[in-house]
Amino acid sequence: MSIMEYNGGSVIAMVGKECVAIASDLRLGNQALGISSNFQKIFPVTDRIYLGLPGLATDVTTLQELFRFRVNMYTIKEEREIQPETFAHLVSSTLYERRFGPYFIEPVIAGLSQTPSGGFKPFIAATDLIGCLNFAKDFVVAGTASSKLFGVAEGLWEPDLEPEDLFETISQTLMNAVDRDAYSGWGCVVHVITKDKIITRTLKGRMD
């Protein structure tokens, strides 16, 4: 019995053209027994940053609350919104604080960062459970279906996808990956972050 697989669940994030997408399944389980089909693992951090927290469910909630607190403190002290790069390092150092008794979570970060010229640049990152950062240019995956997500994403993803095409790509990648994973599934949620709006859609999936 692995702690990382105790509750199940998977998250993926992808880069598009002036947009990013992050998506997860909605299952909460106790090993093979399904408990909930509406367990959110992705949380808004700012208007342009979303954070996915697949792993042990108790730590999903604990870390969500901890990051909410730390980001609020940052906003108050700095009198500005946190940028995705900064937030990624906040995630990394928060996890590394518990180097020898870790939170069993592998976070995924997706957001748009502000450029000096006032534009927006897509940003995604993922870390392991002790905060080792991975800044990828294409897509990042985490959770019990990670190997399946890698395989499908490698086949479907292409550079510079427009928001609607990115939505389709990430949705198909996630749905087909979780359908081959017993610990993930039971519905999906997808967020596409663009410079002027966020598209959030809940997808119906197989319930087995």
Partner: peptide
């Protein structure tokens, strides 16, 4: 709310604990 000893919490329309949960759910 369904809560277990690990601190896992989920708002649910129905829930159960123990061996009975395998039948009740």
């Amino acid at each position: 709310y369904w809560i277990d000893y690990l601190g896992t919490m989920s708002e649910v329309p129905f829930g159960a604990h123990g061996y009975g949960s395998y039948f009740a759910l």
